[in-house]
Design a binder for these strands. Structure first.
Ligand SMILES: [Mn+2]
Ligand SMILES: [Mn+2]
Ligand SMILES: [Zn+2]
Ligand SMILES: [Zn+2]
Lengths: 144, 144
DNA sequence: GCTTTATTGCAAATAATTTGCATTTCCAAA
DNA sequence: TTTGGAAATGCAAATTATTTGCAATAAAGC
């Protein structure tokens, strides 16, 4: 199941690259596979280290460059949670926002159609069209 | 009116500093006055330049250091809008979120109790207590 | 005024990310 | 298949934003 998913995701990525007239290099394949499998939110260095296990010739520059180009193509998303470097995630499923556990650093995903709708309303009232947004909750487990 | 406001705000700041056992220096007074009057969201460099007009001896380091200490004391807020350095604002009125005009860079403030409430609900459902949050809308004026 | 200690300015250090350039690799046309 | 040229890579150096060490300065309380 992870295997099947990885393959299809990887192919999606290749489709994205090809569709954008970009080349499919060994290092891009490795990086993309990691993002697709992982399902988490690694930063550039984490991504680099994981990638280096599969391809020791890969460089941090390439990770950064790949993230930039993939972000432009809409294949990944870049997050900059408070304090800390940018983190990346594979864009496959629907949009979601994040809750960061201040104690563990865990990133929890959630989605609220009501909030999404309210944002649109607010923007409209102000005479604006939303291009993107960012909603992050920072909190701690409630002890009951 | 701007005069009266400035005075009271400045005094508030001094109270915050005094209360925290911090010293009220010439440079802090200048920086704080600028934030209180301005009502906008300058970054460290902008703050430094404005401050330098009133006190040419001020340094960028001091601006950064002052922002850090005031943030810890809750007297100011730090924002990190997409791309671009941290920006600061005086905390006086009630909480609000921001909409950034992608074309002009303008920062528009808004507040929605409904969204605030929904955030709480979501966190609660996930078993969390919100400590802080960040909601930013990025958009452009709608042409009608 | 004098003493103590926080604060400052300056320069150097750090952290994250980007960029210039020579070299390698992809890929599609032959 | 081979091959030519453009795109991508690795490495080192550059940038950007912010922090920090340290000697000098200046608040605050006496
Ligand atoms: Mn996510
Ligand atoms: Mn604001
Ligand atoms: Zn959202
Ligand atoms: Zn809010």
């Amino acid at each position: 199941m992870a295997k099947g998913r990885q393959n299809s995701e990887t192919s999606d990525f290749e489709a994205v690259l090809r569709g954008a007239g970009l080349r499919i290099t060994r290092q891009r394949r490795v990086i993309l596979a990691i993002l697709a499998e992982g399902g988490d939110h690694p930063d550039a260095l984490a991504l680099f280290r994981r990638a280096a296990r599969q391809d020791p010739t890969i460089s941090l520059s390439t990770v950064y460059r790949t993230m930039k180009v993939l972000e432009e193509k809409g294949a990944i998303q870049r997050h900059t949670f408070e304090g800390g470097p940018a983190r990346f995630e594979h864009v496959d499923s629907q949009h979601h926002d994040h809750l960061i556990d201040l104690d563990t650093g865990a990133v929890i995903e959630f989605r609220s159609d009501r909030i999404e709708r309210l944002q649109e309303e607010i923007a409209k009232e102000l005479g604006y069209e939303i291009v993107s947004h960012r909603l992050e909750l920072y909190g701690r487990r409630r002890k009951d």
